[in-house]
Protein backbone atom coordinates (compact mmCIF):
# COMPACT_ATOMS: atom_id res chain seq x y z
CA UNK A 1 0.00 0.00 0.00
CA UNK A 2 1.35 3.39 -0.95
CA UNK A 3 1.21 6.67 0.97
CA UNK A 4 -1.46 8.20 -1.30
CA UNK A 5 -3.81 5.29 -0.77
CA UNK A 6 -3.27 5.38 3.01
CA UNK A 7 -3.78 9.17 3.06
CA UNK A 8 -6.95 8.68 1.01
CA UNK A 9 -8.34 6.05 3.38
CA UNK A 10 -7.49 8.15 6.43
CA UNK A 11 -9.16 11.21 4.91
CA UNK A 12 -12.23 9.09 4.19
CA UNK A 13 -12.27 7.81 7.76
CA UNK A 14 -11.75 11.33 9.14
CA UNK A 15 -14.64 12.69 7.06
CA UNK A 16 -16.96 10.11 8.63
CA UNK A 17 -15.65 10.86 12.13
CA UNK A 18 -16.21 14.60 11.56
CA UNK A 19 -19.79 13.93 10.50
CA UNK A 20 -20.45 11.66 13.48
CA UNK A 21 -18.90 14.16 15.92
CA UNK A 22 -20.94 16.98 14.44
CA UNK A 23 -24.13 14.96 14.93
CA UNK A 24 -23.21 13.86 18.47
CA UNK A 25 -21.88 17.20 19.70
CA UNK A 26 -24.54 19.48 18.24
CA UNK A 27 -27.34 16.88 18.50
CA UNK A 28 -28.27 18.05 15.03
CA UNK A 29 -28.09 16.69 11.52
CA UNK A 30 -29.30 19.89 9.85
CA UNK A 31 -27.88 20.15 6.35
CA UNK A 32 -27.00 16.45 6.17
CA UNK A 33 -28.69 14.34 3.49
CA UNK A 34 -30.08 11.05 4.75
CA UNK A 35 -30.44 9.92 1.12
CA UNK A 36 -26.68 10.25 0.60
CA UNK A 37 -25.97 8.41 3.86
CA UNK A 38 -28.31 5.58 2.86
CA UNK A 39 -26.67 5.37 -0.56
CA UNK A 40 -23.29 5.02 1.16
CA UNK A 41 -24.69 2.20 3.28
CA UNK A 42 -25.85 0.46 0.08
CA UNK A 43 -22.39 1.07 -1.45
CA UNK A 44 -20.59 -0.49 1.52
CA UNK A 45 -22.93 -3.47 1.87
CA UNK A 46 -22.74 -4.39 -1.83
CA UNK A 47 -18.98 -3.83 -2.05
CA UNK A 48 -17.89 -5.53 1.14
CA UNK A 49 -19.71 -8.83 0.58
CA UNK A 50 -16.22 -10.22 0.06
CA UNK A 51 -15.76 -10.01 3.85
CA UNK A 52 -17.50 -13.38 3.86
CA UNK A 53 -15.25 -15.17 1.39
CA UNK A 54 -11.91 -13.45 0.96
CA UNK A 55 -9.25 -12.08 3.24
CA UNK A 56 -6.89 -9.39 1.95
CA UNK A 57 -5.34 -7.98 5.12
CA UNK A 58 -6.27 -7.16 8.70
CA UNK A 59 -6.21 -3.46 7.76
CA UNK A 60 -8.62 -4.11 4.90
CA UNK A 61 -11.05 -6.12 7.03
CA UNK A 62 -11.02 -3.69 9.96
CA UNK A 63 -11.57 -0.65 7.71
CA UNK A 64 -14.47 -2.34 5.92
CA UNK A 65 -16.16 -3.15 9.22
CA UNK A 66 -15.61 0.42 10.47
CA UNK A 67 -17.12 1.89 7.28
CA UNK A 68 -20.14 -0.40 7.55
CA UNK A 69 -20.73 0.27 11.25
CA UNK A 70 -20.31 4.05 11.00
CA UNK A 71 -22.63 4.24 7.96
CA UNK A 72 -25.39 2.49 9.91
CA UNK A 73 -24.69 4.53 13.05
CA UNK A 74 -25.18 7.79 11.11
CA UNK A 75 -28.44 6.46 9.62
CA UNK A 76 -29.60 5.37 13.08
CA UNK A 77 -28.96 8.87 14.46
CA UNK A 78 -30.83 10.54 11.61
CA UNK A 79 -33.80 8.18 11.69
CA UNK A 80 -34.14 7.04 15.30
CA UNK A 81 -32.36 9.34 17.75
CA UNK A 82 -35.18 11.28 19.39
CA UNK A 83 -33.42 14.68 19.35
CA UNK A 84 -31.28 14.37 16.21
CA UNK A 85 -34.04 13.03 13.97
CA UNK A 86 -36.13 16.17 14.56
CA UNK A 87 -33.41 18.31 12.99
CA UNK A 88 -33.45 16.39 9.71
CA UNK A 89 -34.60 18.54 6.73
CA UNK A 90 -36.92 15.93 5.30
CA UNK A 91 -38.82 18.36 3.04
CA UNK A 92 -35.58 19.58 1.43
CA UNK A 93 -33.93 16.18 1.04
CA UNK A 94 -36.11 14.99 -1.84
CA UNK A 95 -33.62 13.63 -4.37
CA UNK A 96 -35.05 10.63 -6.21
CA UNK A 97 -32.42 8.01 -5.38
CA UNK A 98 -33.92 5.46 -7.78
CA UNK A 99 -32.71 7.71 -10.61
CA UNK A 100 -29.22 6.86 -9.40
CA UNK A 101 -29.68 3.27 -8.24
CA UNK A 102 -31.42 1.88 -11.35
CA UNK A 103 -29.01 3.30 -13.99
CA UNK A 104 -26.00 2.23 -11.88
CA UNK A 105 -27.38 -1.29 -11.59
CA UNK A 106 -28.13 -1.55 -15.31
CA UNK A 107 -24.64 -0.26 -16.10
CA UNK A 108 -23.14 -2.81 -13.70
CA UNK A 109 -25.00 -5.58 -15.53
CA UNK A 110 -23.67 -4.34 -18.88
CA UNK A 111 -20.11 -3.32 -17.98
CA UNK A 112 -18.33 -5.58 -15.48
CA UNK A 113 -15.35 -7.87 -15.16
CA UNK A 114 -17.33 -11.05 -14.61
CA UNK A 115 -21.01 -11.96 -14.76
CA UNK A 116 -21.37 -13.21 -11.19
CA UNK A 117 -23.60 -11.94 -8.37
CA UNK A 118 -20.77 -10.64 -6.19
CA UNK A 119 -18.83 -9.11 -9.09
CA UNK A 120 -21.91 -7.30 -10.48
CA UNK A 121 -22.78 -6.00 -7.00
CA UNK A 122 -19.18 -4.88 -6.47
CA UNK A 123 -19.25 -3.03 -9.84
CA UNK A 124 -22.65 -1.53 -8.94
CA UNK A 125 -21.13 -0.20 -5.71
CA UNK A 126 -18.30 1.44 -7.65
CA UNK A 127 -20.76 3.21 -9.99
CA UNK A 128 -23.12 4.16 -7.16
CA UNK A 129 -20.34 5.62 -5.01
CA UNK A 130 -19.43 7.97 -7.87
CA UNK A 131 -22.83 9.67 -7.66
CA UNK A 132 -23.89 9.03 -4.05
CA UNK A 133 -22.90 12.55 -2.94
CA UNK A 134 -25.40 14.18 -5.34
CA UNK A 135 -28.39 14.28 -2.92
CA UNK A 136 -26.06 15.95 -0.39
CA UNK A 137 -24.89 18.55 -2.90
CA UNK A 138 -28.48 19.26 -3.99
CA UNK A 139 -29.50 19.67 -0.34
CA UNK A 140 -26.66 22.15 0.20
CA UNK A 141 -27.69 24.08 -2.88
CA UNK A 142 -31.24 24.31 -1.54
CA UNK A 143 -30.43 25.33 2.01
CA UNK A 144 -27.68 27.70 0.74
CA UNK A 145 -25.80 28.20 3.97
CA UNK A 146 -23.23 25.53 4.62
CA UNK A 147 -22.15 25.09 8.21
CA UNK A 148 -18.44 24.58 8.76
CA UNK A 149 -18.60 20.93 9.77
CA UNK A 150 -20.80 19.87 6.87
CA UNK A 151 -18.52 21.83 4.53
CA UNK A 152 -15.44 20.12 5.96
CA UNK A 153 -17.12 16.73 5.73
CA UNK A 154 -17.79 17.15 2.00
CA UNK A 155 -14.37 18.67 1.40
CA UNK A 156 -12.69 15.65 3.01
CA UNK A 157 -14.85 13.21 1.02
CA UNK A 158 -13.74 14.96 -2.16
CA UNK A 159 -10.10 14.98 -1.05
CA UNK A 160 -10.23 11.26 -0.37
CA UNK A 161 -11.26 10.67 -3.99
CA UNK A 162 -8.57 12.99 -5.31
CA UNK A 163 -5.94 11.08 -3.27
CA UNK A 164 -7.22 7.81 -4.72
CA UNK A 165 -6.62 9.23 -8.22
CA UNK A 166 -2.99 9.94 -7.31
CA UNK A 167 -2.77 6.42 -5.83
CA UNK A 168 -3.90 4.91 -9.15
CA UNK A 169 -1.31 6.90 -11.10
CA UNK A 170 1.34 5.71 -8.63
CA UNK A 171 0.19 2.09 -8.87
CA UNK A 172 0.10 2.25 -12.67
CA UNK A 173 3.79 3.14 -12.74
CA UNK A 174 4.93 0.84 -9.94
CA UNK A 175 2.85 -2.33 -10.40
CA UNK A 176 3.36 -4.32 -13.54
CA UNK A 177 0.13 -4.93 -15.45
CA UNK A 178 -1.99 -3.01 -12.98
CA UNK A 179 -5.02 -1.46 -14.61
CA UNK A 180 -8.65 -1.21 -13.62
CA UNK A 181 -10.68 0.85 -16.05
CA UNK A 182 -14.06 0.57 -14.30
CA UNK A 183 -12.67 1.97 -11.07
CA UNK A 184 -10.55 4.61 -12.81
CA UNK A 185 -13.36 6.04 -14.94
CA UNK A 186 -15.90 6.01 -12.06
CA UNK A 187 -13.35 7.50 -9.68
CA UNK A 188 -12.58 10.31 -12.10
CA UNK A 189 -16.30 11.05 -12.52
CA UNK A 190 -16.68 10.94 -8.75
CA UNK A 191 -13.86 13.44 -8.23
CA UNK A 192 -15.25 15.79 -10.91
CA UNK A 193 -18.61 15.87 -9.09
CA UNK A 194 -16.82 17.74 -6.28
CA UNK A 195 -15.03 20.34 -8.43
CA UNK A 196 -17.74 22.98 -8.19
CA UNK A 197 -17.98 22.49 -4.43
CA UNK A 198 -14.17 22.71 -4.08
CA UNK A 199 -14.20 26.03 -5.90
CA UNK A 200 -16.60 27.66 -3.43
CA UNK A 201 -15.00 25.97 -0.42
CA UNK A 202 -11.52 27.29 -1.28
CA UNK A 203 -12.91 30.71 -2.13
CA UNK A 204 -14.63 30.97 1.28
CA UNK A 205 -11.47 29.77 3.00
CA UNK A 206 -9.27 32.31 1.22
CA UNK A 207 -11.63 35.18 2.03
CA UNK A 208 -11.93 33.84 5.56
CA UNK A 209 -15.71 33.77 5.45
CA UNK A 210 -18.52 31.27 5.84
CA UNK A 211 -19.15 29.16 2.80
CA UNK A 212 -22.12 30.09 0.64
CA UNK A 213 -23.30 28.51 -2.57
CA UNK A 214 -24.71 30.65 -5.38
CA UNK A 215 -28.46 30.42 -6.00
Amino acid sequence: MNIFRLAGDMTHLLSIIVLLLKIQATKSCAGVSLKTQELYAVVFVTRYLDLFYSFISLYNTVMKIIFLLTAFTIIWYMRKHKVVCQTYDKEQDTFRVLFLIVPCFVLALLVNHEMSVTEVLWTFSIYLEAVAILPQLVLLQRTKNVDNLTGNYIFMLGSYRALYLVNWVYRYFTELGYRQWIVWVSGTVQTCVYLDFFYYYVQAWRNNERMKLPG
Binding site: R5, W122, G177
Partner: peptide, 10 residues
Protein backbone atom coordinates in the same frame (compact mmCIF):
# COMPACT_ATOMS: atom_id res chain seq x y z
CA UNK B 1 -2.87 -11.67 -9.02
CA UNK B 2 -5.09 -9.39 -11.10
CA UNK B 3 -8.39 -10.18 -9.38
CA UNK B 4 -7.17 -9.55 -5.87
CA UNK B 5 -5.18 -6.51 -7.04
CA UNK B 6 -8.36 -4.74 -8.14
CA UNK B 7 -10.29 -5.75 -5.02
CA UNK B 8 -7.69 -4.67 -2.48
CA UNK B 9 -8.92 -1.08 -2.29
CA UNK B 10 -11.72 0.12 -0.03
Amino acid sequence: EWHSAIHDEL
